[in-house]
Design a protein around this nucleic acid. Sequence first.
DNA 1: CTGAAAGCGCTTACAG
DNA 2: CTGAAAGCGCTTACAG
Lengths: 336, 336
Amino acid sequence: MKNKITLKELAKLLNVSISTVSKALNDSSEISPKTVERVKELAALHKYRPNPVAVNLKSSKSGTIGVVIPNISNTYFAQVLLGIEAKAQKEGLQVITYISNESFEREKQIADMLTSGFVDGVLIAISEATHRARNYDHIFNILEYEIPVVLYDRTNIDIPVDKIGIDDEKSFEDATRLLISKGIKRIGLASAIHHLGVGKLRIKGYQKALSEGMEQLVTASSRHQVLVDGIKDLLVNKKVEAMLCTDFVSAMLVYRMAYENKVEIPKDLKMIGFLNKDVAQHLTPSISYIEQFPEEIGKNAMEMLIKRMNGKLMPEKNTHKIINTELIHLESTRFN
Amino acid sequence: MKNKITLKELAKLLNVSISTVSKALNDSSEISPKTVERVKELAALHKYRPNPVAVNLKSSKSGTIGVVIPNISNTYFAQVLLGIEAKAQKEGLQVITYISNESFEREKQIADMLTSGFVDGVLIAISEATHRARNYDHIFNILEYEIPVVLYDRTNIDIPVDKIGIDDEKSFEDATRLLISKGIKRIGLASAIHHLGVGKLRIKGYQKALSEGMEQLVTASSRHQVLVDGIKDLLVNKKVEAMLCTDFVSAMLVYRMAYENKVEIPKDLKMIGFLNKDVAQHLTPSISYIEQFPEEIGKNAMEMLIKRMNGKLMPEKNTHKIINTELIHLESTRFN
DNA sequence: CTGAAAGCGCTTACAG
DNA sequence: CTGAAAGCGCTTACAG
């Protein structure tokens, strides 16, 4: 088993040429059925499998795609990867994973790797640092190598590539409207990611939904204590009846502040957050959350990339697909 | 930029042979310094980079390693991947990710892929289903292809490969002893993963630590309602003073049952769980947890694999490395 | 010091 | 229907 059998060895054993073996295995119509059968039989016997590296060299394809993930500890991204991997597996593609750790420098290094010929296509969510730097040269560089790129999240930047993501703004706009429709007047929002694109969009959606005369009650900070104080102020002094949270950290802080200040969820306070399902549903009380369907996003991103790689998409024209989010009602938005 | 420049083209431009260019770029001592300089200059100008596929074909190496992950939504595994990726990046290796979804069938398919020549080495955590089936033929098959394999978790099976993981038994034995040393007599344990290897080991550690005369207070089930009832029984009827939880789900259920039955943490109940840091520290109250250092595990696994691939480890002799866990005290084990 | 040649394992026009 | 030849892009013994 040690050394895998090659076409050459197969050819020798069969007393035919390498070409014949190759063609037979690829079901070429040039080869007689009998030969095909003989070849396939022996190949099966020896468990022959073509050396993918050699095949790649011939075809100038690598059969792999690169996936760049800003933060794998974020369950959202982990699930996107799950969707990507599942689809890739079906298509016989290998997934090479790169983790940028939200670093601009690391992302540039990765982009450099990606252009060295390892991958046929790229799926990427741009790092936070890159967004801040507003420097996308390394992405353009990938495109110059004619490697298709699909953005699978954080799509709010102007690069001529295909994109897929959710509508962050609409998700919170809808959530806010729903609360309003239930007669809630004082709706607060907490955010630890107000400086990020997605954070901004979610806040914007909330603001958009507030009707005339409704007070904006927002607290946002990436500094722990500031956010804690801001949330406490909203809960205790501003007497909000509901809180929207743009992220995990702010949601968990609202939780804590509610607990410490004897604000009962959902009796005194409704709550909706951008949380992953696993955490949201296991908390006590469970928190209503915005389902983003990350696996679906991964799968769709992969599909888009494959189409683009196969020239099935119009050149010079990029697609931007939106996956609809869904507000999942759990205990924290129970109205009695 | 479209088509990458090759050695051949470089050679033509320089009026030297392909061999010379190749050697010059690889700093061969055969080539005159002047030529080396000329070659490198032009190569840099054209941003020449060797085609990795061609290099691989020559060297019969792929420069990639395969990582098999049972469940990427589990933050623990995501963090292991983070450690692996970081180390791989330093070594110039590519990481191909495969997700088995805890499925035996899927794992076998993946094992098949792995032997087809894509990877030089494999890092794997065996799926739950495979453990249940106790069928490791596909792993042996990888070994027959002389592809080194390292188990990076769930190491309690008898396969002749290098392994790295934590000591699940000891982690809970130590935790239990600590509670005992604080004068706690009635220590309960809840588990939703008692049927898995790691679950069994953790429970065993707890049992081992209980001194003579101390009552074993265990509730374990993978059926939601059974576990809920069991936990409630421990908290309300059996009046436990502390709870150990082997996993996320059981911890969250203890939480809920404590809340619903007005059992206050940590006043009435101490709590320690196998949780990831992010969740543990953001809960209210925060839960003391067993830190497993997943990144460290990933890094070490990669290091072991590299050593094995480079023949730096004794053949016929496998290493089993243990990473020590640490009990992190948060609010749920506050003793006043 | 430089280059022609062989070869890694394949595929595929082309000739017979 | 089969096979010799060229070639994918590289490396490396060998000859000069």
